[in-house]
Design a binder for these strands. Structure first.
Lengths: 244, 244
DNA sequence: GCAAAAGTGTTCTCGGTACACCCATGC
DNA sequence: GCATGGGTGTACCGAGAACACTTTTGC
């Protein structure tokens, strides 16, 4: 029998691209590393997978330890394995993206990996000179999110439990990086019957208060079971802008 | 500085789900293993990633060495990392799917991993008791293919350079596991302007010979650059069948 | 001439898109 | 009373889906 020992000299990590939504801005949670390599660089929350831990478990543990997050939407996206991507040796990483309700939590680093945790606008990430190949990972995950949000109602994972239709629309606009037509958006969303009208109103706003809605997870489960497709199309307004 | 040595004790592999299309059957290429673990089991063509090799390179090398395949469509799908998935130690694997023109090549094992190489119908795979978690990998890759084929014209990768519209339709039906309406399918495909009419006919068939077409890769490139979406919808005939 | 697959057009329906004005609140 | 965003309906258009008969070949 051959000897395979020489293959058992690599490590692997998980890295999380954590999306949040705030006002009308799509954000990503980053940590400032306090250990080598890339000490003092901004980076995705990620760490080595333990020997007795499978990949998803590792991703959830890292979310908890580095960002204090629990119980969030999490999906594997892609693995990155360039030979020289890690200075300590051969390290493959598995990228995940996750969606969190941003106002829900206050990132508190209580570990010796992250010296600081902070939300950044997606559009600012390219100026930060992220550690490793993390910028590429952000790009790939953002593209994946853009695609997924058209196919499943995962947008709700980014909003508080009660939200207005305008907030939902702003979220879609931020993710898809486009403008949506208000009336068409509402018609489409409401026609899916995935929202529960809470018969409550916004309060304390300096304009006509909006109705509050809640996502109907039970109904969504029903739809899933009978196979169903969710999609949001963009308005063509931007084309007119492009011409002018 | 911490010591990370304990993390550098794992290995990783790549595994390929290789799809081919033959007559009206979607097939997968499997090897019969001639080394432990799972000796004599059918398995996906896969092997350890070498220390100085990145993931895509490894996938292509394995395709070449184990299946004699070169220059094929290849895409990363997902990584699998259950703790006990490999008896020799901690091994993560990265699953790829690839698409090949089946009549183009005759699988010849010339290596000491595969004792035999053979095409199996996708529908038969679940009876083979594949090595490792390979059956799950086949399922995931098949689902991915089903989705991708609706969004990009990758179906052509599975057909010979010259093909008839009926062959193309049978391919879509095999992948999507549904029936398609002939007239609607042709209208849709031809309206995309991605096929070149070769002004040639099938020969030697015991019925009216069909026109031969060729995929227009150049035009596809143009479309890609200006952002474009390709989709094929299924017929609703099967619903009628289900009722009867 | 018969079996077997190729080829071809029209109608209907539904979802997508464009588009503009009145309403309720805080200040 | 004014600024701010909330909320609403209609007409048009195009893509998708349903559907049946004639044509060409090998035998």
């Amino acid at each position: 029998m051959k000897n395979f020992d020489s293959y058992f000299k690599s490590a692997f990590t998980v890295d999380n691209v954590i999306f949040g939504f705030d006002e009308s801005d799509l954000k990503i949670l980053l940590i400032k590393r306090q250990e080598d390599p890339y000490i003092d660089h901004w980076a995705l929350p990620g760490y080595f997978v333990l020997p007795d831990e499978d990949l998803n478990t590792a991703a959830r543990r890292v979310l908890k330890q580095l960002a204090g997050l629990d119980n969030v939407y999490l999906e594997q996206v892609k693995s990155f394995g360039a030979v020289d991507r890690h200075p300590f040796g051969r390290v493959i990483t598995v990228a995940y993206y996750s969606l969190v309700k941003i106002d829900n939590f206050n990132p508190q680093p209580d570990n010796d990996v992250a010296k600081e945790v902070r939300w950044f606008s997606v559009s600012d990430v390219s100026n930060l000179n992220l550690a490793f190949d993390h910028e590429e990972m952000v790009d790939v995950c953002f593209e994946t999110l853009k695609h997924q949000v058209r196919v499943r109602p995962i947008g709700f994972e980014l909003l508080p439990p009660k939200f207005t239709l305008t907030e939902l629309q702003h979220l879609y606009e931020a993710i898809l990086e486009t403008d949506l037509d208000k009336r068409n958006f509402r018609k489409k969303i409401l026609s899916m019957n995935l929202l529960i009208d809470l018969d409550e109103m916004q309060a304390g706003v300096a304009h006509r208060p909006a109705k509050l809605y809640q996502f109907d997870y039970d109904k969504y489960q029903e739809f899933l079971e009978e196979g169903f497709s969710f999609e949001v199309k963009e308005s063509k307004r931007k084309e007119r802008q492009a011409v002018s």
